[in-house]
Design a protein around this nucleic acid. Sequence first.
DNA 1: GTATATGATTCTCA
DNA 2: TGAGAATCATATAC
Length: 412
Amino acid sequence: MDDQTRMMTGLTGLGGLPQPDVGDPDSVRKQQSLGQPQQDIGDILQQIMAITDESLDEAQARKHALNCHRMKPALFSVLCEIKEKTVLSIRGVQEEDPPDPQIMRLDNMLLAEGVSGPEKGGGSAAAAAAAAAAGGSPTDSSIEHSDYRAKLAQIRQIYHSELEKYEQACSEFTNHVMNLLREQSRTRPISPKEIERMVAIIHRKFSSIQMQLKQSTCEAVMILRSRFLDARRKRRNFNKQATEVLNEYFYSHLSNPYPSEEAKEELAKKCGITVSQVSNWFGNKRIRYKKNIGKFQEEANLYAVKTAVDAANVSAQASQANSPATPNSGTTCSISSTCRGCPFLLTGFTSYTQVDTLHPVTHLTGGYEELSGSGLYTPHRLDANSWQDTTNPPSVTSPPGPPGSVHSDTSN
DNA sequence: GTATATGATTCTCA
DNA sequence: TGAGAATCATATAC
């Protein structure tokens, strides 16, 4: 007799079903000789199906009868035997799966974006960094920042609530299956290892749902991020005063318009923009100036005149303030606020004004040049080694500004 | 609506 | 890493 037949014949006698006594080998033989095993199986299945419609009490009673059946130990041992054989085929399944790389990627991303993990940092930090890079007015940045944070918090909330539901459903189903298995373990051999494996299978099934949840959350974050980044691309022109400050610096350092980090910071502060925006501005300005010097001549003239007028005003104030005996005793540079502190002497500057208003740009190169060791400084003249003639920024060859000067062309 | 100006981004290079 | 160069995308002027 094969295992299945043994099992089935064993089952026919269980549960108080109206079957011949299977405990009696003669009876079984009689049955088989009658050629009715197929019919019996059909009947048994019918009866099993009917069990679901029976009342709980009846089912309990049958279960009790089954547990107390004198054939139970025999059936159990048969099942154990079958199990012993079949367990070999499922051994491979028992090996632990490595963590799904896709889930790991999603987890890392959600963590980095601040959706999972601790509430602080992550996304808000990313938003802060992005907002800082966005530039514009601080108010705008903070509005965008808070908007981003609010939306991210919303995503986070939905994610956690869905995750909670998922975990609850998963644990409920697992418990249910475990209870069923425990229950069944009274009538068939189920090892704790098997229960564990079953739980793992359930978790695997559920993890695909979890993956979907994580994936859609990531997508939502990506969409939010791209919208936020798109918003960053929305360009706003700097205000007039900021542009003037930058232009003043640029044209007054035309021989070497590469502000140092300190100068950039100072300019950024003065203009109400970020240091990277200052860098962008100078990068764009240098390229565009170089490409079309002619076009910028007018602008250069404008700033030359402006700086000359400013300087004249400063000199007038200085001569009023200073002793009449020393009319040219070193006023500070007024080309731009960033130049203040440079001993841009009136003599040098007067000549600068006269020359450059008559012959602009070609002579107006900004920066300071020491007059043959005299200690007096005049604006630089454009020379062959100037940045405008080379692809790369000039090496640090321009004359150093006076001590304490903030000019980058003298310090970098 | 089109041309131009301009701030930002991306890529390459030293 | 900073700069040049090309390019994108938007603002602004007409």
